[in-house]
Design a protein around this nucleic acid. Structure first.
Lengths: 122, 122
DNA sequence: GATGGCTTGTTACCGATGGTAAGTGTAAGG
DNA sequence: CCTTACACTTACCATCGGTAACAAGCCATC
């Protein structure tokens, strides 16, 4: 009953690969994880996604908006207020990206140990 | 009973973020997905992960080896034979990355529609 | 009325990364 | 002795990620 995937990311010319390239990205992952809790304004995203620059956050959000993963709510106020929210499509992305983030947190000790061992061998 | 994560990828200085940066990458995702089926030699990986260059594949595999996700088996033969295999740690990465690939394949039609709608608005 | 602050960006710039194309080394086969 | 096979290297260029400074518009303060 689940439709078979009509696309194959392993094929270079398959358009689904452009989609994979966008979501397989650390900034995308962190922004989507942050927004899955609640809609947020630009400034709050900058503090939640620690270390992201205004430029990169703007670009990431524009790309996610273009791909239908995020909606942008602009309020005509002074100072300006812009809120970002996951779409229904964006919410389907939460579980996979959250899993990636959790993997990084849970397995980093192993990764670190492997790195030290590797570097010692070289 | 599950240990609480001692690391937080949302913190810029947290070392787990370097780990997230590595796995949240399209080439990493495709190589791990390819290797999850079976161990493979370099040349077969190049054809399975369609479109990857020798240089990028070499770098990706070196990084994955350093992080303990892949093991490299070198056979002293002519012409050379090198096989790559997921470690136990690498196999724990399969499910999250496979989920990402499936998302890209299953939702690309939505992404494409959103893109066309966005571009028409601008 | 000039100054500075608030917020959401934009611009200029530069170093790092991703990507292509060609070359390297070794030994068997013709 | 020239080609082929394989797993890389190297040189080189384009694109991306990242920093720092500035723009716009109104308010409050000095």
């Amino acid at each position: 009953m689940p439709q078979l995937p009509a696309f194959d990311v392993m094929t270079a010319t398959c358009p689904s690969r452009t989609s994979l390239a966008r979501i397989a990205n650390k900034w995308t992952a962190m922004v989507v994880i942050a927004l899955s809790a609640d809609r947020m304004r630009f400034r709050d995203l900058r503090t939640t996604v620690d270390g992201i620059s205004a430029k990169v956050l703007t670009e990431t959000l524009r790309d996610l908006e273009r791909d239908g993963i995020v909606i942008r709510h602009v309020y005509a106020e002074i100072p300006p207020r812009v809120e970002y929210e996951l779409t229904a499509l964006g919410r389907t992305l939460h579980a996979p990206l959250q899993a990636l983030g959790l993997w990084a947190e849970e397995h980093f000790a192993d990764v670190l140990a492997a790195r030290e061992s590797y570097d010692a061998r070289q």
